[in-house]
């Protein structure tokens, strides 16, 4: 196995440890703690009132808009990460001859991001009233 992948092995060992920890805590607490259900305890808590209607109702479209916009920006961010690390690295980064074209390309990329941002603002996605 090459070196890059090998550095991830400890993470898997750690993951197994945490999984064991979480499972132990959940099972042990479930096993130790008392459980005396009554009708009132099993009702949804609404500050002492009897619950009115179902909790799963329609909700505002704005939450969807924010989620969609988040996807756009997060994808852009994912493209930006490899570039920031390699663009001006001392060794093994972008070759010196390519740095000017890469600089221009990234300016255009960020400009595209800016246009999308202004468009979303104009569309009123950031308004919560």
């Amino acid at each position: 196995m090459d070196h890059e992948l090998q550095s991830f092995l400890p993470i898997f060992i750690y993951l197994v440890l945490i999984l064991g920890f979480v499972a132990t805590v959940l099972i042990a607490s479930h096993w130790i703690a008392p459980r005396k259900p009554t009708v009132v305890k099993d009702m949804p808590y609404e500050s002492g009132m009897d619950p009115i209607g179902d909790a799963r109702q329609h909700y505002d479209i704005r939450f969807y808009l924010v989620a969609i916009l988040f996807l756009v920006f997060d994808m852009e961010l994912l493209f930006l990460y490899p570039w920031t690390v390699s663009a001006y690295a001392d060794q093994g980064g972008v070759p010196t001859g390519l740095r000017n074209p890469v600089f221009i390309i990234m300016l255009v990329f960020l400009a595209t991001l800016g246009i999308a941002y202004v468009y979303a603002w104009k569309k009123g996605v950031f308004e919560w009233r």
Binding site: A28, S29, H30, I32, A33, P34, R35, K36, P37, K41, D42, M43, P44
Partner: peptide
């Protein structure tokens, strides 16, 4: 750990 686990 010791308090009741309410699972509604």
């Amino acid at each position: 750990v010791l308090k009741e686990q309410v699972v509604p």
